[in-house]
Amino acid sequence: MSNRFTWFNTTSLTLGFVFLYLPILILVFFSFNESRLVTVWAGFSTKWYVELFKDEAFLDAALVTLRVALLSATVATILGTLAAVVMVRAGRFRGRTLFSGMIYAPLVMPEVITGLSLLLLFVAMGVDRGFWTITMAHITFSMCYAAVVVSSRMVTFDRSLEEAATDLGCTPFQSFIKVTLPIMAPAIISAWLLAFTLSLDDLVIASFTSGPGATTLPMKIYSQVRLGVTPKINALSTILIMIVTMGVITASILTKRAEAQRKADELMAES
């Protein structure tokens, strides 16, 4: 098997990545445009960033989004980890098929259906819609993603480590906290990050489940975009893209380092 780049491979990789990244780069580029028109270059300017930070509606929406995302990602990760433990460890129980169905179904469910059905539930229960209903909706669909991420790691978990801990006098609960959780930590952290970005990104479900009081950032962007493209949205997008890119790169460096550390520890333990 050849391990060099052939011309075919180089061309298709280049074209593929240009296709994936060029639109984003163009978007970032025009956020520094002097002109109000997004597609005609008129000189460098950061005025759209200044205007963005002056716009309180955007700042409010950003704050709501952040609060929803932090809270929903945290609860979703806890519930998702519990669900993963149930799927991998609990063995047989009544309603197991229904349980795993309810974990996997939201992953392929169109957002319009999830949004509509949750809204109708909230209306039937007579709850006031706003911050809390969006948060609950986000917990519901992101806990399923969290459960899948955590359980795929848990399947490969070496249970003899837990047994060793119990032999050394831990209760099952202690061994779960002291042995299982630290080993599962990378998967749990990626589950949290996934839940967090899913919540940050969601337009459809938030639009259905929100009330008059709460507008999230995607909802605000969407309503602006419907009115027309403005460099302000480009500026906002650039900031969000920067945050996510830095987050993903940091996370991948950290996991690589943790992995290297773990391998070094294993070598130490073996020698």
Partner: peptide, 10 residues
């Protein structure tokens, strides 16, 4: 990982 809405907007 970057926003779906933003990528469509681009």
């Amino acid at each position: 990982w970057t926003s779906f809405l933003i990528r469509v907007y681009a």
